[in-house]
């Protein structure tokens, strides 16, 4: 079983969201970068759980980005995984990034390609699906459970108002979300081991980008909370019905 886990960096979940250069760039000053939580807690930890059951499994991590992403990929290696590949390129859009990862995935002939369901910065939820199409593989998104039975992968995925169970044979691309695995933190042994695990840097292939961010915008500030006395629930129901018109 050969597993490829797609890792992206993202700003820490508590990072202040602000923009510079006339609202065209994310203000990175003072921002802590973390492994995108969906990639870490669900995709990577699921791969680690698979390897714990089947020690012959091999886990490769792949990321696209400059040298500044290396601390993030080292942290991922500290959690688990045998080696990492950094594709040394910018990330202009999802299609470009998916093309880069597809190139790596083709060379490694993986049985299972896992990605987080989306990054918490761009929220495009696109890499897994694009990668599957580029590799001509089936794609199952929003997986909350995954079990292996030989070459068959049993997956539960979220749908509106419930869940759907499905079966698919490897190779397959799966996007992962909450439920897949329990979050864990790297231990000292993992951190030490990660320092010597191979981190291969490869140059990008030529690829297009289909989209580009023109500018960012913060949502308008709230007008301020209107407090209602705790002993007057009738007033709350009245304002929701008559002013806000939401009930």
């Amino acid at each position: 079983m050969k597993i490829l886990v797609c890792i992206s960096k993202s700003p820490d979940t508590t990072a202040k969201i602000a923009f510079t250069d006339n609202n065209t760039k994310f203000a990175t000053d003072g921002v802590q970068w973390i492994i995108n939580p969906y990639d870490e807690w669900y995709a990577l930890v699921k791969a680690i759980e698979i390897k714990e059951k089947d020690p012959s499994a091999v886990i490769h991590l792949v990321t696209v980005g400059g040298a500044d992403v290396e601390p993030v990929i080292r942290k991922a290696l500290a959690l688990g995984g045998d080696e990492a590949i950094r594709i040394n390129a910018d990330t202009p859009d999802s299609y470009y990034v998916a093309c880069q990862i597809a190139e790596t995935a083709k060379q490694g002939s993986y049985d299972l390609v896992l990605a987080g369901k989306e990054t918490i910065d761009h929220n495009s939820a696109s890499i897994g699906g694009m990668l599957a199409e580029l590799l001509e593989l089936p794609y199952v998104s929003l997986a909350t459970k995954l079990e292996l039975n030989g070459n068959t992968v049993l997956i539960t995925r979220e749908i509106e108002g419930g869940e759907e169970s499905c079966e698919v044979n490897t190779p397959v691309v799966v996007s992962c979300q909450k439920g897949m695995a329990e979050a864990r933190i790297p231990n000292m042994r993992g951190i030490m081991a990660a320092r010597t695990k191979p981190l291969k840097v490869v140059e990008p292939v030529a690829a297009d980008s289909f989209t580009g961010i023109v500018s960012f915008e913060l949502p308008p500030a709230k007008a301020g909370v209107k407090l209602i006395p705790a002993d007057n629930p009738a007033e709350l129901v009245r304002v929701l019905h008559e002013e806000a018109k939401v009930i």
Binding site: Y95, S124, A125, S126, G128, G129, A132, E133, Y139, V140
Partner: peptide, 19 residues
């Protein structure tokens, strides 16, 4: 939604259409 997130990225690659 859950179906759109599954389908749109693949469709984007197939049609060479920005998503």
């Amino acid at each position: 939604n859950s179906d759109g997130k599954a389908i749109a990225p693949g469709l984007s690659v197939k049609l060479k259409a920005g998503l």
